[in-house]
Computed example of a mutant assay.
Amino acid sequence: MPLLAAFIAVILLNVYAAVLIWLRAVVYRVALYRPMLLNIVLSFVPVVVAVLGIIGLLLIGTAGSLVNAPSVVSTILWVYLIVGTIAWILFFPNAIYLITELNFSHRREDDPVPLWFDIVQTLTLTLSGIANAVLSMGVMEFAFTTVILDPAHGTPVLSWVFAGVVIVLGAVGVYFGRYLRFNSWDVRHPIGMLRKLRAHFAIKGKALEAFGFVLTHAVLIALVFVPLYLLAYAALRAG
């Protein structure tokens, strides 16, 4: 029940963010800011990937209990885990990326939209992204803990290492997306990405800027994720 309530709350937050973006255009007769709507969809992708990952694990486990080939099932399980985790990590920064929408770059000097409306709308958008990030990472860490590790004595240290690495990689991905305009699917062109990275960090001060950006964003996500995950994990184990 707590997990279902969390899913419903996150979905409602995403819907509310989309509704506010639509209302902004309708009520104040301005152009619909479609990039924000696209960002909501992209930020929810990690949640979808995480949920599909859990469903896949259950299906593999069920199929494994029906066939007498433990080594084959184990191989399939590990390949599925590795591929699924990599796919999720690639899309995970899209959720945290919504923090950067707080720069109000969509506003103009003569914007007829009241500032108070844009504050609520943009904050809701940002919170929806953080919620998507926390929920998807909670699902992935729970799967990592229960499938790979032994959770008999609480959340293993290795699972926190996993979460920490993902949070830092997510913050790095946000920096790449905001300042180098990388997308998750740009990994298909690694040579081009490396060239852009080399040119970017050749500029004096960019490395220090990136460090500060990643550090502050990672700490923020960690401070939100850790207590919420501990509460959810305790509730699931108690249930």
Rank of each mutant, 00 (worst) to 15 (best):
F7V: 10
V10G: 14
I11Q: 05
L12V: 12
N14P: 01
A17G: 06
V19T: 15
L20S: 08
L23E: 10
R24V: 00
R29A: 15
V30P: 07
L32N: 01
Y33V: 05
R34W: 00
P35C: 06
M36V: 00
M36L: 04
M36N: 00
N39S: 01
I40P: 09
I40V: 13
V41R: 01
L42I: 06
S43V: 00
F44M: 11
P46A: 01
V47K: 13
A50K: 08
V51S: 11
L52S: 12
I55R: 07
L59F: 10
G64F: 14
G64R: 07
S65N: 12
V67G: 10
V67T: 06
N68E: 09
A69M: 15
A69R: 13
T75A: 14
T75M: 03
I76E: 09
V79R: 03
V79I: 07
Y80L: 05
Y80V: 05
I82G: 09
V83M: 04
G84Y: 08
T85P: 04
F91S: 03
A95T: 15
I96K: 04
Y97W: 12
L98K: 02
E101P: 04
N103R: 04
N103A: 06
F104W: 03
S105H: 04
E109F: 08
D111F: 08
V113H: 05
D118M: 14
D118T: 11
V120R: 15
L123V: 14
T124W: 05
T124F: 10
L125P: 02
I130K: 00
I130T: 09
A133V: 01
A133K: 01
V134F: 09
L135W: 10
M137L: 12
M137T: 00
M140G: 04
M140T: 08
E141V: 11
A143E: 12
F144M: 15
V147F: 08
I148E: 07
L149G: 13
L149M: 12
D150W: 09
G154N: 15
T155S: 12
L158T: 15
W160C: 00
G164D: 12
V165H: 14
V166L: 11
V166S: 07
L169A: 12
A171N: 14
A171D: 11
G173V: 01
G173L: 01
F182T: 01
F182L: 01
N183L: 02
W185T: 06
W185D: 03
R188I: 13
G192V: 11
M193A: 07
K196F: 07
A199R: 07
H200I: 03
H200N: 13
G212T: 10
V214L: 11
H217F: 04
L223E: 00
F225L: 07
V226D: 00
L228D: 13
A235N: 09
R237S: 02
